[in-house]
Design a protein around this nucleic acid. Structure first.
Length: 315
DNA sequence: ACGATTATTGCGTTCTT
DNA sequence: AAGAAAACAATAATCGT
């Protein structure tokens, strides 16, 4: 029997969390993570202590479609977004034509071009704002490379903002913090993404992303939740192109194992791979260990050892 | 510095064709 | 019989306390 204390020690690798049941939905004015007070502004409801976005988009910021012509509408334009440094409220000075599409005289064009230059200079009032724009750009790039949802992107951007507000960027690179923000958002939403997945499109060493995430997690008290093997099953299953039956069986296997303690401290993706392997063999679909190991980014040996754990469980 | 998980490598065994 | 796959064992590397 392994001593319990060491399990507690290593599980932190994959299950950084501060409270076991953080997922409970609270309608009240308390943060589900740290019980701090939450405040609601026009954009979202955030916890004052930890920065957790409890709720968002209470207010419909979409265009008003009821009005039939322009002056009946009171709200128009693109919705505000946390994903841009100016929350999407930028102004651009066009070139070439006036509002009616007519050509402009050379004199006016020169004047406009001077104005444009001054305006782009004025867009970033400080170095911090420039960094923010850069960071949010990186976050957007990584998020789209990983094909994550828009809400997740906004949360990641919000994380990056918080990180900057808390001066977590000093001594760290913007790219690393951007990647860490994306990973943090994934963890808070139980998205089956590994640190490798997030680091891959980022242009930094993984160690720096790890470092950034660690400080992000501890300083901001992220409501990071353990990502379970069952969350990885669908993703691996689609990469392997296995039938639904096997996918569901693998998911069941994973969930049953999670009920016991055998999945604590192990790489979720590796365990999910073992579940898929076992499920495939139960239904005479020959998946090789190296196949499943490869899509999960683990070694075949890992798949084997976890399959043994699964066998003992089923009896 | 220690313990746990995982990767890597090498090697004899089992299964398939 | 030949080749692939799974099993086993020993060692190294990594990570968190």
């Amino acid at each position: 029997m392994t001593p319990l204390v060491s399990i507690m020690a290593t599980r932190e690798i994959y299950e950084t969390t501060f409270d076991e049941d953080v997922q409970t939905e609270t309608e009240s004015n308390q943060c589900p993570e740290c019980s701090g007070r939450v405040t609601t502004n026009a954009v979202e409801t955030v916890c004052e202590d930890c920065g957790l976005v409890v709720d968002k988009q209470r207010i419909d910021r979409g265009p008003e479609w009821r009005g039939f012509d322009e002056d009946e509408r009171e709200r128009t334009g693109a919705p505000l977004t946390a994903a841009r440094h100016d929350r999407g409220l930028s102004t651009e000075i066009g070139r070439g034509t006036d509002a009616n599409g007519n050509e402009l005289s050379g004199q006016k064009r020169r004047r406009l071009s001077r104005m444009r230059r001054e305006q782009t200079r004025g867009q970033f009032q400080s170095k911090a704002e420039r960094n923010l724009a850069h960071g949010l750009g990186e976050v957007r790039r990584i998020v789209s490379a990983l094909e994550l949802s828009e809400t997740l992107r906004d949360q990641a951007c919000q994380l990056f903002r918080s990180a900057q507000n808390e001066d977590l960027l000093v001594g760290r690179s913007i790219e690393a913090m951007a990647a860490a923000s994306v990973y943090g958002a994934c963890r808070c939403n139980r998205r089956p993404r590994t640190l490798d997945d997030v680091t891959d499109p980022a242009r930094v060493e993984q160690s720096r992303v790890t470092n950034a995430y660690k400080t992000l997690n501890s300083e901001l008290g992220l409501p990071a939740q353990p990502v379970t093997p069952s969350a990885f099953v669908p993703r691996l299953a689609s990469e392997l192109d296995v039938p639904d039956q096997i996918r569901q069986r693998a998911r069941n296997l994973a969930e049953e194992s999670e009920a016991t303690a055998v999945t604590t401290g192990v790489r979720p993706s590796g365990f999910a791979a073992a579940c898929l392997y076992k499920a495939g063999h139960e239904q005479d679909q020959l998946l090789t260990q190296s196949e499943v190991a490869e899509v999960a980014n683990v070694s075949p040996v890992t798949v084997r050892t976890h399959r043994e754990a699964l066998d003992e469980l089923a009896v």
